[in-house]
Nucleic acid binder design. Structure first.
Length: 572
RNA sequence: CGGGGAGUAGCGCAGUCUGGUAGCGCACCUGCCUUGGGAGUAGGGGGUCGCAAGUUCGAAUCUUGUCUCCCCGACCA
């Protein structure tokens, strides 16, 4: 591609509304532009990158035996009513009516549609298993779109759905996708972790997230500093470890704590370390109130209490509910004399002489002890993991890092097939629900994550596999006939060899061209100038390291071809 | 949805407090000059100041309403 014929509007200055580096660089490099909040146009350069990511994903999916389809983006409400999600999904679902006043939505995901397709055609176990996927533009009316492609409302996603007749089959399908995902993110040149995740609202039995490690990530990832264990904060296991304190039990003492209703306030007022205070959180689990005890310096993990109780919904009680249940205002709840079932985090059982709320305005109790003063129905892992906690798998300890969720795989089970009657007849002629799995990858988010992980102060540094071009040839002075001739010759040779080349033939000052080349992140740059030509040399510069070398003109094309092939790991 | 901030030329911004008919840098167009890290020079084009109503002789500037965008929080496959 000749730059002079291309459409590549780079910006010298960063648009004011971009916050994170990938967003800034994608705007500055002319990869995309904004049409509305969370809605972007892909310009030619950005589209090339998107296509690269898509093709890597496509190759790996096909290799794993998945079959590509393309479903409708506009979906009828009936399907969503069948699965029960029309009422459940909330404002994130963009709904509208057609001219006949029938309800539709822009698809935010396609479980309903794919299940409808499969149930229409699949009747027999002989037709299974099958795994269908698509790359498609989805729409989720996010509360707060931000960070460019990282959290857009309209975004391209690869979503795959597997259908199996047995648990083993479904697990096998899941494993295949897991392996394919590892391949995909490796092929994209990303540093990532696969983490245990909570399966959340989509339902199902188990799930992994693929997180690209980056400081600007929106998710917290707990990972072991010694082994491969990594998990979402929601899910990270905190092992039950400790010894019961041996201090003699003190008498319970009432203390007045005016206007102190946070752990920090109480700790400061009574000169106690926060880990000697136990907070009593009142939560509502499917309309039943329970108390949860958490050490003062820890955080309650709502997903864990939800799973422990087997509840569908868990939320913190309102101030009014707390007053009614405990007799005291919010901030002064405690386990002593409390009429609710009490659950406690494991850490609580090792404490002696703790400080708790008195269930009375401005009163706390000190010297409180388990068993003597209150009873706990069940101890469990109920808090968020923290950096420094012990790894459940090895002897390492937890690190707290940030990640960008680029992929998520779920074993769904029969949630949708049951609701939507997607069944098959087994060898005995008996009807069964199909066992499903679903597997997503954010295509644009993957591209953005790659930039978060690969950039410097001058711009993007694309990994070869997803670079919009492999090489850029910078003509120092395109008006110099020798320079023009030699550049075009190299350009032709490289193209014939299947290398993707951008020829910067613009009549611009060299400095401007170098800056643009750096900004758009092409991995290799050949500089063709009168100075080098006199010696019969081209200059080859690597974007990432900045290393330059002078190559004889005759050898340059071949050197580049082998460098590109090597960087692509001989793929293609 | 709660809190905060911003809408003035393609981009980045000043001007608003104290009303007098819009400016700077970059980009763009033309000429000269220049060609290894966003040159120099001379000239030029481009804005109903987000929108609407109001106050006023006069509104980018004051008032009210409204829309949009950004940040923090809550929420989230």
């Amino acid at each position: 591609m000749r730059y002079s014929n291309y459409f590549l509007p780079t910006l010298k200055e960063t648009p004011a509304d971009a916050e994170v580096v990938s967003h800034k660089l994608m705007l500055r490099s002319g990869m995309m532009n904004k049409l509305a909040a969370g809605i972007y146009n892909y310009l030619p350069l950005g589209l090339r990158v998107i296509r690269k990511v898509e093709n890597i994903v496509r190759d790996c999916m096909n290799e794993a035996g998945a079959i590509e389809v393309l479903m409708a983006s506009v979906q009828p409400a009936e399907l969503w009513e069948e699965s029960g999600r029309w009422g459940y999904y909330g404002n994130e679902l963009l709904r509208f009516k057609d001219r006949h006043q029938r309800d539709f939505c822009m698809g935010p995901t396609h479980e309903e549609v794919i299940t409808d397709i499969v149930r229409s055609y699949v009747k027999s176990y002989r037709q299974l298993p099958v795994n269908l996927y698509q790359m498609q533009t989805k729409f989720r009316d996010e509360v707060r779109p931000r960070f460019g492609l990282m959290r857009g409302r309209e975004f391209i996603m690869k979503d795959a759905y597997s259908f199996d007749t047995t648990e083993e089959g479904a697990n096998n399908s899941y494993q295949k996708m897991r392996n394919a995902y590892c391949k995909i993110f490796e092929a994209c040149g990303l540093e990532y972790r696969m983490v245990d995740a909570d399966s959340g609202a989509i339902g199902g039995s188990f799930s992994h997230e693929f997180m690209v490690l980056a400081e600007t990530g929106e998710d917290m990832v707990i990972s072991c500093d010694k082994c491969d264990y990594a998990a979402n904060v929601e899910k990270a296991i905190v092992i039950d470890k400790g010894e019961v304190a041996t201090a003699p039990m003190l008498e319970v003492k009432r203390v007045v704590t005016k206007a102190a209703h946070t752990v920090a306030d109480v700790a400061a007022m009574l000169s106690l370390p926060p880990n000697q205070i136990v907070k009593t959180m009142i939560v509502v689990a499917d309309e039943v109130l329970v108390a949860v005890l958490i050490r003062g310096d820890h955080e309650l993990n709502e997903a864990k209490i939800k799973n422990l109780l087997g509840a569908a919904v868990v939320e913190l009680a309102t101030a009014a509910q707390i007053v009614e249940a405990t007799g005291g205002p919010i901030g002064y709840s405690g386990p002593v004399g409390l009429k609710l079932p009490i659950y406690a985090d494991n850490a609580v059982k090792y404490l002696r002489n703790i400080c708790v709320g008195g269930n009375e305005k401005e009163i706390h109790l000190e010297g409180v002890n388990l068993e003597r003063d209150f009873k706990v129905r069940q101890f469990a892992d109920l808090r968020n993991a923290e950096a420094g906690d012990s790894c459940p798998v090895c002897t390492g300890s937890y690190l707290n890092t940030r990640g960008i969720e680029v992929g998520h795989i779920f074993k769904l089970g029969t949630k949708y097939s049951e609701a939507m009657k997607a069944t098959f007849l087994d060898a005995d002629g008996k009807s069964n629900d199909i066992i499903m799995g679903c597997y997503g990858i954010g295509i644009g988010r993957t591209a953005a994550a790659a930039i978060e992980q690969n950039h410097d102060e001058n711009g993007i540094i694309f990994p070869m596999a997803i670079a919009p071009f492999h090489v850029i040839i910078t003509m120092v002075n395109p008006k110099d006939e020798e320079v023009a001739r030699a550049s075009v010759e190299l350009y032709d040779d490289l193209q014939k060899a299947g290398i993707e080349v951008l020829l910067d033939d613009r009549d611009e000052r060299p400095g401007a061209k170098f800056k643009d080349a750096d900004l758009i992140g092409i991995p290799l740059r050949v500089t063709v100038g009168a100075r080098g030509l006199k010696e019969g040399l081209f200059e080859l510069q690597e974007r990432r390291s900045g290393e330059r070398e002078m190559l004889p003109i005759a050898e340059t094309a071949q050197t580049i071809v082998s460098r590109v092939r090597k960087a692509l790991n001989l793929r293609g």
